[in-house]
Design a protein around this nucleic acid. Sequence first.
DNA 1: TAGGCCATCTGGTCCT
DNA 2: AGGACCAGATGGCCTA
Length: 365
Amino acid sequence: MTGPVCVGQEESALITKEMPTRSILHDDIDCEEESDFLSDDDIDFSDQSEATTVETVEHESKTSGNKKSKQTKANIVEKDEPKVPKKRGPKKKKMTKARLMRLRMRRVKANTRERNRMHGLNDALDILRKHVPCYSKTQKLSKIETLRLACNYIGALANILKTGIRPDGVSFAKALSKGLSQNTMNLVAGCLQLNPRTLLPDSPAYTKPYQFLYENSVDFSSPLISQSEFVNQCMTSYDSFSPSRGNACYSVPSMNQIQHTNIQTPLNDLGSPRIMSPLQGFTADNSLQIEAMTSSNFLRCDNVIDSYPNNYVSMPNQVMNIAPIGQECITTCAVMENMQDSFLDNDTIVMIGNQHGNIFDHVSP
DNA sequence: TAGGCCATCTGGTCCT
DNA sequence: AGGACCAGATGGCCTA
């Protein structure tokens, strides 16, 4: 914690510890008698520069010791400025000692609120840091980099869902790295176990986007697949391409960690398992656990699944229902992965979503 | 040492 | 009157 203030202390203590304010403390004012306080008409709390001007003028007149000069200056001001009718309404209150204290206390409370507000903002940013790829406790992303990376991440994931094409690691990393600093780009590259040079704009590593297709795909011959068969495939498949953790810093839990989390399959009115969208349900913490596969490892996105309450995947020529395939998060992810593979083979654009089109639109179940 | 990042204070504005 | 939000200012810390 930096800064001049000790957070969490009593306000009374804060009064003495906080930095003196320019407009409220007025340490230069002798507060012994009520008459010594200046009224609000004399002190402009809203514009320090104006107050300074008044002080300067008065100082000049004091040093010269000539009342006339002060009057002359006042006359000049009056002549130059158009006459303004006297303000109506209640007269401004005098700056009494009690009022001064109230204002000071109000400022202290406002500072506390502002601190708490910023702490809340930072807490939210910390949560966001954990949800973007390349989360690292040792190399903490700055605020701006976190926001940029999150934007890029959302865009990249949306692109995957929109096109159904799984990008290679370099393409994905490049998409994540748009507008990021060199340090963060290196971090992204490290997390994806890539050479940072491959992320340079003119890198010849991969010339086409999505050139490198992921190899560890599950054979998904039929869109309607039995639960047991699918789960078996998923377990085998995901075990095989679990990332080597190494230096990579992912938003945990990884697939291996969440694959045994039991989540109840929602039931319909008849008590049967409800038909689910491939992006619906099956999460460890009621959030989406899609793993966007890359050439090297996987990335993860959260908190999207609740936005996919519908039961189908639409394609240009067909609507495919996804059977309730299991009670574990991994299956949902596997469905997506396999569907991407099978559709990709047919060079078909996969539209995943609901009647309202936008996959990010929230629809109440 | 300059520059980036951050926490904090502050006053202004808007809203309740 | 008071709270939320915002942006500017300031000073501390860290790193290249």
